[in-house]
Design a binder for these strands. Structure first.
Lengths: 402, 402
DNA sequence: CTATTTCGTCATGGCGGTTTACAAATTAGT
DNA sequence: ACTAATTTGTAAACCGCCATGACGAAATAG
């Protein structure tokens, strides 16, 4: 059968590697790492059958990866079936580590994750960052990074890279924060401001949250829409297991999708944007509350107590979200919608009206809405894991480095 | 530097081929075909430098492709620069051909395109298909296909596959028409109904139109949103040179994006969907015209004559489109928006209000809107070319067949 | 205790791209 | 016109990588 219509990367341009024997070897090493990482301890034979190579070939690949310290031999498997039991292979817990950092509106956080996905070290610092000059904030996060890296090194890890999650728009170069309204930051090159001696990546918080959901969530599909809110409302589009970035890197700006074309004016220049109905500020106002610290916790608390004003405000926000998501679902046909970040905590009161609106307006098969298990922890974990993934993607690169 | 965030297909799952030597060879053959096809006559040395292999390796690849009849040697290049002139290679005009078919609301069309992209044979049959039973329509299109194939064969071509563009939703299996409201078709397996002795693919008309724009349009970017209308309003999302399909294959349903959440009811169950404002029926009603044959031509004619009612109707439709596209652009951050299909002919009257609305509401960099050069011819060409692309994607498969 | 199954490894082989060398075909310089 | 320089295409030797097939090792089944 012909390929069903045309998907991306038709001629194998998915990787910049030329299609040479070395490239093949690198791709196969990556495949072994991914397979072992994803499916737990596995014997060489099991890996071989999964990636479509012979046992002999996998043996040499595994040897190389063990020599590089990226894989570990755990010893013979418990013999359940007939035949010689395999020797279990696992991703190493001692080699490279991914460092994740998060610049939130009122906290900074850094953590180190090993190749197995375990968080091995972390540091948090509370305190509002809104309106502060970028330099001292970045200085502080640099300090946290140094501390986390030091602790990780004591555990036998070395930093393979740093990924920073910021609540704002990040350019495609993955270094420049173009606009972070909640911090009042504009056009900052974090690559310059935060000097570290390993590769640095900057990304949008919602995007990292979505990646965390993709990699860590249980049963999360390959194609979904991840919605999170942190004053602004961000969404991340995951297509075929990868993030949709957009030409400028700005994809996912759900907050400024028009919900009511002649609604109230929005600072963005439009009218009736979703943020005017479901943004944190709008919801607080509708609930009769003042802006302040830990506003989401406040909302959740009052709603749980049964505060009818708050509940109505959240219901209405859910309806507005439902309208905006209808558009997105119609356009993208995702497998599901996931509420993450701060929204996860408010889900009990948002979901009913949101789902009602979505179901009513969607013609085709209903698109299920679920709530992220990770919630606000997503972005930091996603950032750290993105570094881990980059190691799995090209093991030789880091093996050379070590 | 680490990979800037995470894109799809991290570990090379872009192709089902195992990462073996044979797979490498097949990918390299495909790469040669794509390169020669895209960049016109090219010498072996030029191909080699482009795909990152050595001249010797490309020589053997080219030999194989020439033996298979997929490439042709045109003879020595005109010597402009110093050094021995290369021997120009071109895609063969005699091997496999892609057959495209289009089932429109009031016409049927079939064409054959060779590997060079030339249309070598075509057949059209006018007449309304709305409400007709599917079987006779499919019988007719089968007849046209037989005619076109026969003529192509007289020219030394052989059919490598058939792609059918239909104005409706097609399941991910690329065989089943789930719903085609304009034809009153539901749940038809064209794979069963249209027996041909080469691979058959069915796809949405708007999607094929977008692919045509991607492959044939001059200067069309790699990431764009292609909007077309044919009673319903369809969009196609092209990301990184590939079509975004959606879980069920239904991505791109722009027509039911809410534009005015409490607007008029829509058959889909929602309210204020775009189709209620910019759908063909709605526009005709607003312009004070009756539905009938060639409605788009009628609208364009009246607008050109200066009919103020028609112009106002189109302006308003443009505004509604602008609102819906604002949401899409915010979500996807495409490089541009392309108006195709029937919309292309109405662009002069739609564009001003559409662009005004889009610019006003978009915060970030403006997203340019352009008009498809192909217009209504897009879907048919896109269908035929999709078969051609599948040949380029895996030359050995067809070489064996021949 | 033997037959069977599965695992990991080794030796061999084939396949595919690279390297190196060279002849052919052109331009640039004298 | 003749030589030097440059580029192309091909052939031969080489190397890397995976496949194949055989074997010992370690378990289960009877």
């Amino acid at each position: 059968m012909t390929a069903p219509l045309h998907e991306a990367h038709p001629s194998g341009s998915g990787r910049a590697l030329p299609n040479t024997q070395q490239g093949m070897r690198r791709r196969n090493l990556a495949k072994v790492m991914h397979t072992v990482s994803a499916e737990g301890p596995l014997s060489r034979a099991a890996v071989a059958s999964r990636i479509g190579l012979t046992r002999a070939a996998v043996s040499t690949l595994v040897d190389e990866l063990i020599r590089s310290g990226l894989l570990e031999e755990l010893g013979p498997e418990r013999p359940g079936r007939v035949g010689r039991p395999g020797s279990a292979l696992a991703v190493s817990g001692h080699g490279p580590a991914g460092i994740g950092a998060e610049i939130g509106v009122d906290h900074l956080a850094v953590c180190a994750v090993d190749l197995r996905g375990e968080v091995r070290s972390r540091a948090v610092r509370h305190g509002a960052n809104r309106g502060r000059a970028p330099e001292p904030v970045i200085e502080e996060i640099g300090e946290l990074v140094r501390r986390v890296v030091a602790e990780a090194e004591r555990e036998g890890l070395w930093p393979a890279g740093l990924a920073v999650a910021v609540p704002g728009l990040v350019a495609r170069d993955a270094r420049t924060v173009v606009r972070a309204p909640n911090l009042d930051w504009r056009d900052l090159d974090l690559g310059d401001l935060l000097p570290v001696d390993f590769p640095l990546t900057v990304g949008n918080e919602a995007n990292f949250g979505a990646l965390a959901e993709l990699w860590l969530g249980d049963g999360t599909p390959h194609d979904f829409l991840h919605v999170s809110a942190e004053i602004g409302i961000g969404a991340a589009v995951v297509v075929d297991g990868g993030l949709l970035r957009g030409t400028h890197g700005f994809a996912g700006e759900l907050g400024h999708v028009p919900v009511q074309p002649d609604g109230p004016e929005c600072p963005c220049g439009g009218r009736g944007c979703l943020e005017q109905y479901a943004g944190e500020e709008a919801v607080l106002r509708a609930a009769g509350l003042e802006p302040g610290e830990d506003r989401v916790g406040l909302l959740a608390g009052r709603a749980a107590e049964g505060d009818e004003d708050v509940r109505r405000a959240l219901r209405d926000a859910g309806t507005a979200l439902g309208v905006a998501l209808t558009g997105a679902v119609n356009l993208l046909d995702p497998e599901s919608v996931v509420l993450g970040g701060a929204l996860a905590g408010l889900a009990p009161w948002l979901l009913p009206s949101l789902e009602a609106e979505l179901d009513r307006r969607t013609a085709g098969p209903a698109c299920p809405v679920s709530v992220s298990r990770l919630g606000p922890a997503g972005p930091l974990l996603g950032a750290a894991h993105s570094v881990v993934r980059s190691v799995l993607d090209d093991p030789v690169a880091v093996a050379e480095h070590a």
